[in-house]
Every structure is written in C-alpha cells, then in structure tokens.
Simulated assay, not measured.
Amino acid sequence: MARPRLPVGTAGKITSRRDGPNWIAFCKYCDLDGIVRKIRVWDATKTKAENKLRERIRDRQAVQGRVNMGTKVVAVGEKWLSEFREQVDLGNRSGSSLDTYEHRWNTHVKPRVLGLSMGDLDAGRVDTILQDINRALSASSAKTARTVLSGLWGYAVRNGPLKINPVRDARPVENRKRRKAPRALEVHEALAIFELADGDEIAVRQDLPDIMRFYAGTGERTGEGIAVRWEHIDFKAKVARMEGNFVRTKADGAKINDGKSENAQRDVVLADWLVTMLLNRRARVAAQRGIASEALTGWIFPNSKGGLREASNLRRDWRAFRVRHGLGDWFTPRTFRRTVATVLTDALPARYASDLLGHSRVSQTTDTYVGRKAPSRRPAEVLEVLGGDLKEGSKGAP
C-alpha cells in the first residue's frame, strides 16, 4: 500500500543522524503548491538540531499563513483581527464591532493567553479563561471574549490542518447577577419629565425638551434620532424616514451607517402632537436663519455649530439633567424607547411595536424593551367572562 501523501502545510517525521562533527536533522515538508520538499538543518547536538528544525518548520508555516498547534495564540488573534478589518473596509462588518473586539482582545483576552500556543488553548483552557473574565468583570465581557476566541479559532481552522474549534465545548457563560427588568416610564412620569425639561434653562439650550419628545414619539435609538434630517420628514403624510444610525469608530470617525438590522431603514408614523412639535421647531429654526420653513434642510437636532451632534455629548447632557433633577441612573435616552415599546404592547399586538422600533424579531421587543412595573388589569378584565353569574360578595357552588 502506498504511503499517504503529506497534507499541504505539514511536515513528516523528523530524522536525525551524525554528519561529521555535527548532527543533521531533516524531514519532508509539503508546501502550499503541493510539492513535497526536504528541509535540513545542522547543529552541535541531536537535540539542538531537531529543535532548530522544528523552528524552521514553524517559521515556514508562519510565512505561508498556516496555523498549527505550535502557533502562538497572540499571533493568530492579531491575524483574525486583521481579517476582520478587511471585512469592515469591504462593508461586510461593523466598525463598532471591530472596536469592541479589539478592546476585549487587548484588555481581557490577550493578557490571559500570552505565551500560549494553539495546542494549549483547548476547551478546558478556554472555559477557565471565560469563567475568570466572568468573575472578574461581567457576563457581558465574558460573552464578547468568547466571540473573540471563537473567531481566532475559526481563523486557525480555515488556515491550517486544525479541524475543531474547541470554544464551542466550553461551558456557557452564566450571568451571576439577576437581570434587571427593563425600566419604562408611566405616561404621567414621562409628562412630568417633559415639564422638568421645559423649565430647565440648560436643558432648553441643549435642545433636550424637543429631543426627549422626539424619542418618546418615535422610540428611536439614540443614534437614529441624531441622524434624522428635515428632508426625512413628510409632514403631509405624518411620516419620518429613518435612514441610518450615528456611529463613531476608530477607523472612520463619526458617520451615519445603514442601521443595526435590515429593518433599521423604515418609515415611522408620527402622532399629531409630535408633528405639531416638529412644525413649531422648523418654523423657529427657519426664522432664525431667515429662510422659509419649507426650504429648511439639515440635521433636526444638530450640535451648537449646526453640525452632526455627537452621541457621547448627548449622553453627557442627559446625565447632567438627570443629576440636576434627582433622577436615577436608569434614566437614559433608551428609557423612552422602552416606554414606547411598553405603551404600544399594552394597547396593540406586539408586532406593531416591533415594526416601529425596527426590530427583526417580535421577541426582541417583548423580552428586552417592554418594561413592567405593575401588573396590568387588562388580563383580569378579559377573564371576567369566566365569572358566569357570580357577583362580588356572592358565594360560589358548595
């Protein structure tokens, strides 16, 4: 039976023997072109010669982009990130995801794999790393670290003879803290906050009253509200067109992307009170610029110089407002998004809220955004039909 050929990018058995005063170590190696070539090295002792040959094999594989069990984890991680950057440049991946993965890699994962080779990074070691990050930081950080480790192992499988990604065999990351229920506002609470903002000179100067009402009337994400322009509002149809989402990444800086999902670009119907608020705002801004209202273009909620507002600056102003009025740290721009989800699902089937918020799944709306503080009376009212002839205070059947 013929001897099986070497797989591409792998070496055969190492053989060593004396060669004059030194030792020679040699093996066969299958290059990327499929041709098997012999590699030879010499050194003073057998052990030194064999180790030198192993280093030569490793270097040859590194030059060819191959990954094996001896390749350093750090090297594979950097190559995976480089591959991810290429996908960002092609528009196939998000720049914000790249920023997140680079941060988790450099601060949480890389320090825990320094000196390790891919052969050391088995399922048990991966599990230890993830559980350590979970204990020291949070479940969220550990889950992102798991994505990073899975990504670099995926790169290794694609670029070498390795066949299995052991990250999948590590235990799931469990959240040690009880997940807090989404916090939404009652209608009277929202109206009270609007009143606080209207009477706050700093908030008025920072456009917070109008911004809060816009979020409350549309349920938009923070970046979507920043990205809306006057050209996106159809006042006759009472519809706002959501065209994108503000993001800032290290690679591209501040920009408007296409949104977080396929449903991100959508038409959002506007309540009459919100249309009135926007019409009044348009008239006021147009008068300041000395132009007709209908000719007004640009960002609806710009920065102080008329340019694109930074999400981080909006959150900073929001926090300051929260502190001035003694509101808890739960009160963020996203609070109104949860409020919209809750108000709508109390009155309509959940798919209406899901469509308005731009979610790809109805379950995302109900599980993540609907906030419950007090039980609704509506189920009890519906179940009244099962009471039959029983009246309050009457006795049931014996």
Rank of each mutant, 00 (worst) to 15 (best):
residue 221 R to E: 04
residue 165 N to P: 06
residue 291 I to N: 04
residue 64 Q to I: 00
residue 262 E to W: 05
residue 27 C to W: 04
residue 283 A to H: 11
residue 140 S to F: 04
residue 44 A to F: 07
residue 98 L to D: 01
residue 67 V to L: 03
residue 257 N to V: 12
residue 158 R to H: 07
residue 173 V to A: 02
residue 351 R to Y: 14
residue 130 L to F: 00
residue 98 L to C: 03
residue 250 K to D: 11
residue 254 A to Y: 11
residue 21 P to E: 15
residue 9 G to A: 12
residue 197 A to L: 15
residue 354 S to C: 10
residue 377 R to Y: 08
residue 148 V to P: 00
residue 304 S to W: 07
residue 40 R to Q: 08
residue 334 R to A: 09
residue 324 R to H: 06
residue 25 A to R: 04
residue 311 A to S: 15
residue 247 V to N: 06
residue 183 R to I: 09
residue 59 D to L: 13
residue 76 V to C: 04
residue 315 R to E: 14
residue 243 E to F: 05
residue 85 R to N: 04
residue 65 G to N: 11
residue 126 V to T: 09
residue 397 A to D: 12
residue 189 E to R: 07
residue 51 N to M: 09
residue 42 W to E: 11
residue 68 N to Y: 01
residue 380 A to D: 15
residue 289 R to M: 08
residue 3 R to G: 04
residue 357 L to A: 10
residue 188 H to K: 11
residue 199 G to S: 09
residue 393 G to A: 11
residue 321 F to W: 09
residue 151 G to H: 01
residue 396 G to Y: 06
residue 49 A to F: 02
residue 180 K to L: 02
residue 201 E to L: 13
residue 324 R to C: 05
residue 233 I to Q: 02
residue 13 K to S: 06
residue 121 L to T: 02
residue 32 L to T: 14
residue 325 H to G: 07
residue 83 E to F: 04
residue 321 F to M: 13
residue 127 D to Y: 06
residue 383 L to K: 09
residue 98 L to Y: 07
residue 153 W to F: 10
residue 387 G to R: 13
residue 19 D to F: 13
residue 45 T to W: 08
residue 132 D to H: 06
residue 398 P to R: 11
residue 241 R to P: 00
residue 164 I to C: 00
residue 347 A to Y: 09
residue 279 L to G: 05
residue 317 D to P: 00
residue 263 N to P: 00
residue 231 E to A: 13
residue 141 S to M: 12
residue 106 N to M: 06
residue 228 V to H: 02
residue 45 T to Q: 07
residue 250 K to W: 03
residue 396 G to F: 11
residue 208 L to F: 04
residue 347 A to F: 07
residue 275 V to A: 07
residue 105 W to G: 00
residue 18 R to K: 15
residue 28 K to A: 08
residue 96 S to C: 10
residue 202 I to R: 14
residue 335 T to N: 02
residue 379 P to H: 09
residue 343 V to H: 15
residue 375 P to F: 04
residue 268 V to Q: 10
residue 118 M to L: 14
residue 192 A to C: 05
residue 201 E to H: 08
residue 126 V to N: 01
residue 382 V to F: 13
